[in-house]
Design a protein around this nucleic acid. Structure first.
Lengths: 211, 211
DNA sequence: GTGGAATGTAAGTAAATATTTACTTTGTCA
DNA sequence: TGACAAAGTAAATATTTACTTACATTCCAC
């Protein structure tokens, strides 16, 4: 039968451990930012989503600012783990492509959370948050640059590998942005695959190259 | 000599025509978003920047929402004009490169305003704003796609020109994001030039191509 | 099973923010 | 010149928002 007319709160309190609750809060915060934008992140909205009172949120965090820092830390850690766990197979270029696509799949799996870091949406919240975000993007960049450098071949100037890595980051950011802007209708993976195909030709041109 | 200790308002009222004032307001709004992010856009901050009272703002706009819509419209129009005015010279590919760099220069000249459209920062404010922003990006994309298609050559599948255009958009977005994230230290133009050089090779590989 | 610690919340409060009101100053044009 | 419209504002008001307090419930170690 129908539950309640419009239960303002779950009838029975949902007790959680502090750690669990903090993670719930952090994930809800990221979800709101990813789905509705930073402006819509409010304590009331957070409480509503979790089905708890606003006071509960402040039992576990001292301020909104703390929630934001924890949220960005949390997403950054997820992203870092994903990158470090990545292996891939085949040629360096194939692995670079796989990494890009794997990250985009990851964005989609996790509801777009890491996108708020990768597209700089949170960067102006505080210097601390900025640093975490920048460090994380730097990590992605270095990983891609390593693969790109291998793919391009060592005889060429190292700079070109960096530029290919920049392009791969650009593909990630652009695909993510288009996904968000299209209200998640435009698939990131398909979007990226088309661009990667073009890039592959540049890399092959370099390999076969002038030399 | 020193003006006032900390004049809370200009001693003499600054009268403007309604049209002028509305443009001032709209530009200040965009400047705040571009420099400090959407969260920092407040009527008080807007009034402070313009040296007028908050009531003045509401004489010219019915609500904050209206200001936002007007601001996005305004920036979109600037961007559209810039694209339509663009000519360029040389081969189609050279002109495509020039257009990308010209847009980045434009972002910098105008204090980063159009970036809030191109990187989707305002897209979730309202359906109306979303539509304006999407339309504008679509315009950029089509212009680049036309040039890219010419550059790639007609004998190849039309899809590839589209993909090259997507990459050019990606270069624009990524360069702009990096500029914003670096607190405007990382130069957009230099960043993009490196990537364009790599892309050129892909296009040339296509031209000379398998055929 | 009990008592203290952890978790939860209803009902606040204070500050911030958008918006309105009632009134003043300035421009303009007949 | 004077009167009407347009622009400006100080001082409210209404609402939203982050955060607190005082108390209730649940967990868990003993």
């Amino acid at each position: 039968m129908a539950p309640e007319r419009s239960a303002p709160r779950a009838r029975t309190r949902q007790y959680r451990s502090g750690d669990e609750r903090r993670i719930e809060i952090v994930r809800a915060a990221i979800a709101i930012i990813a789905e509705q934008g930073l402006r819509e992140l409010k304590t009331a909205e957070l409480a509503r989503r979790l089905g708890v009172s606003e006071a509960t949120i402040f039992r576990h965090f001292g301020s909104m600012e703390e929630i934001l820092v924890a949220a960005v830390r949390y997403e950054a850690a997820l992203l870092r783990d994903r990158i470090e766990a990545f292996e891939g197979s085949g040629t360096p270029w194939e692995r670079a492509e796989q990494l890009v696509l794997s990250l985009l799949d990851f964005f989609e799996e996790t509801g777009g959370g890491p996108i708020v870091i990768v597209t700089g949406q949170v960067i102006r919240l505080s210097p601390e948050i900025r640093e975490i975000a920048m460090k994380t993007i730097g990590l992605v960049r270095r990983r891609l640059a390593a693969l790109a450098n291998e793919a391009v071949g060592r005889e060429r100037a190292a700079a070109s590998g960096e530029q290919v890595a920049n392009l791969l980051i650009a593909v990630i950011q652009s695909s993510a942005l288009r996904w968000v802007m299209s209200e998640r209708k435009w698939p990131m993976r398909a979007n990226a695959e088309g661009m990667l195909e073009v890039l592959r030709q540049a890399v092959e041109a370099r390999e076969g190259g002038v030399a």
